[in-house]
């Protein structure tokens, strides 16, 4: 499950780099996927946990990093949903989840006997108040952010966005399970019951995140694949033609327009540049090139 999630997130991050360069509004959700990937990496699914942790002193700092990266991932996802729902960033509660990070770091530092490196670092140390505070505050911040995210999506949650929101609700249930475990284990004698509830955290957390990531990826591809099919060949052909006929002063300009503009805008710029080239050189392109340019222009269309 974790490896599937890692592959999904890696694909997303790579596919979205051009959009992140062009559109600043896309950066929040991109940062979310980067932090999500870092969180997964710090779980030790690519490099063994012991290896990563040994570089960091072998005192389970990876556990703290997992918590911080996961929180940042959800926080930035929350921000992109905020933009989607057109909600201004006015409430003081907006940055509240980030305040939990220094508190978590302090609590983590106060945990005694942090060696050796272990995936279940917090469970044997739950008797300590610092561990309970560290784990509890992390879950509380996560739960708060996820619930706010679902709340912001309430009017838009239709179709795949509803699946996305459902995945987030499963994550919220997982966080609630873990929070219940922390409270029951540390403050009551019902340890067995607490462990039984706590065991649901990992199952639900990764299930929820996988559903969320998969629905987001399907939404993303269904939006972008038809455009890529319609324009990509034309964009590449026009860029190559601009380079071949030396339509620009710089060889980098055609490639820059291709990367820096949306596909349609890049194509339009290339067409204008090629026409300018024809006019200044006072010679027309050969008939097959002219025909292809005409076909592309017809696809773009113009409202007169």
């Amino acid at each position: 499950m974790r490896l599937i999630l890692f592959a999904l997130l890696s694909a997303l991050i790579l596919l979205r780099i051009p959009a992140v360069v062009k559109v600043k509004e896309s950066r929040a959700s991109w940062l979310a996927s980067v932090f999500g990937l870092l969180a997964l990496y710090s779980l030790g699914i690519v490099t063994p946990l012991e290896t990563i942790d040994s570089y960091l002193g072998g005192v389970n700092v990876t556990n703290l990093l997992q918590a911080i990266f996961a929180l940042l991932a959800i926080f930035f996802f929350n921000d992109s949903v905020r933009q989607l729902a057109n909600i201004p960033r006015v409430s003081w509660t907006y940055y509240a989840p980030l305040l939990s990070i220094p508190i978590m770091i302090t609590c983590f530092a106060l945990i005694e006997d942090k060696r050796p490196t272990a995936a279940n670092f917090i469970f044997p140390r739950m008797e300590q108040l610092a561990t309970a505070a560290y784990s509890g505050i992390y879950m509380l911040a996560l739960l708060f952010t996820v619930l706010r995210l679902v709340y912001m999506l309430r009017h838009k949650a239709k179709g795949l966005l509803a699946v996305f929101a459902a995945g987030m609700i499963v994550v919220a249930v997982a966080c609630a399970c873990h929070l219940t475990y922390v409270v029951l284990f540390h403050f009551t004698p019902w340890h067995e019951f607490a462990l039984a509830i706590g065991s649901w955290f990992y199952r639900l957390f990764y299930l929820g995140l996988s559903v969320t990531a998969a629905s987001w990826l399907i939404l993303f591809l269904s939006k972008h694949l038809p455009r890529l099919r319609l324009w990509m060949t034309d964009a590449l052909w026009l860029t190559a033609l601009r380079i071949r006929v030396n339509a620009d002063r710089s060889l980098f300009k055609p490639a820059w327009d291709f990367i820096n503009e949306t596909l349609e805008d890049g194509i339009y710029k290339s067409l204008i540049r090629l026409h300018n080239h024809e006019v200044t050189k006072l010679e027309a392109f050969p008939e097959p090139i002219k025909n292809r340019i005409s076909r592309i222009e017809a696809k773009l269309g113009a409202r007169i």
């Binding site: 959009a19 939006k223 596909l263 349609e264 805008d265 339009y268 696809k299 007169i304």
Partner: peptide, 21 residues
């Protein structure tokens, strides 16, 4: 001219979607 043509193109870039762009 570039931005005006964008506004009057039939097949222009889709509206900005911060969640998916």
């Amino acid at each position: 001219a570039f931005r005006m043509s964008k506004k009057t193109r039939v097949n222009s870039s889709p509206a900005l979607d911060p969640f998916l762009c």
